[in-house]
Nucleic acid binder design. Structure first.
Lengths: 143, 143
DNA sequence: CTCGATATTTCATGTTGTCAAGTAATTGGG
DNA sequence: CCCAATTACTTGACAACATGAAATATCGAG
């Protein structure tokens, strides 16, 4: 039986809602500083980890592939991303960051200070505790 | 000196990112079940707590007032919200949920189980701890 | 080779968001 | 009282994001 609407759970949910709102806001702000929208920043970040086919990007973003076409179009027209053929399957186009895109992704990552500022209020022990609690909450294997 | 990119902080940030993604996804899903968009659900929820002038809604959503006009238009055309004059200031329009809107808001609140399910993995003691850590992180007075 | 499935794009459409301009009502200084 | 500045809201133009349906090209199995 999952916890009902007890006041403790409601309070925690509310706090998580606040965290979510603040995270989103700061993410959009950081993206805007590099003249990117949130969606563009998320795709660029994804591709900076590894070039991906369009279809895979859509899966990561949980949206329709046709939507990704437009986002990558805009990133490509700004020279941050390029489409490459997939040698193994000519239907597939791999989106990969250009050098400029990789630099932008790195700058974006660095400027995501939203995380450091609020976490700075916690001691190392507290951060460790928070990490463990979030892992358990998300059902992630601690190791 | 706020913590730098030490691996602990990076891990916690990553976990928070996961929480944010899951929260958003489930919020949109719950809204969609009531044929609402996320933005419409957020406004309806706000108004279910208290009728608000358009300007105030924009402040809560951190967007331009002109944007709120459209969102409230759509909610109004579906009979979930109505605009009332403010007796104290004839420039102001108060947006308030209709009976139908209030019922929808309540149903929406109930179906937001995203919070209960993951929190169910934590004991009461852990939830209390998580609450306190989030409060400290957000700089919220614990009481 | 042919047929069904897959990857991507294009198009139509709707929602969300911004900004600039316009209307209506309030407020405060002279 | 009166006028000017301010405030609240709406409108219109435009861009990004999102979906769904249809078109194109390629793949893979039989």
């Amino acid at each position: 039986m999952t916890p009902r609407a007890d006041s403790l759970t409601v309070e925690v949910v509310d706090l998580i809602g606040t965290v979510v709102a603040r995270y989103y806001e700061e993410y959009e702000h950081a993206a805007a500083e590099h003249s990117l929208t949130g969606a563009q920043a998320r795709v660029l970040r994804l591709l900076s980890l590894e070039p991906l086919p369009m279809r895979k990007i859509a899966q990561c973003l949980k949206c329709e592939p046709s939507n990704v076409t437009g986002i990558v179009d805009r990133l490509e027209s700004r020279g941050l991303v390029e489409r490459r053929p997939d040698p193994a399957d000519r239907r597939v186009k791999l989106a990969a960051p250009t050098d400029d895109g990789a630099r932008t992704a790195e700058a974006l990552r660095t400027s995501l200070d939203f995380a450091r500022e609020p976490l700075g209020r916690l001691t190392v022990a507290e951060r460790t505790l928070l990490k463990e609690l979030l892992q358990r909450m998300l059902g992630v294997a601690p190791e």
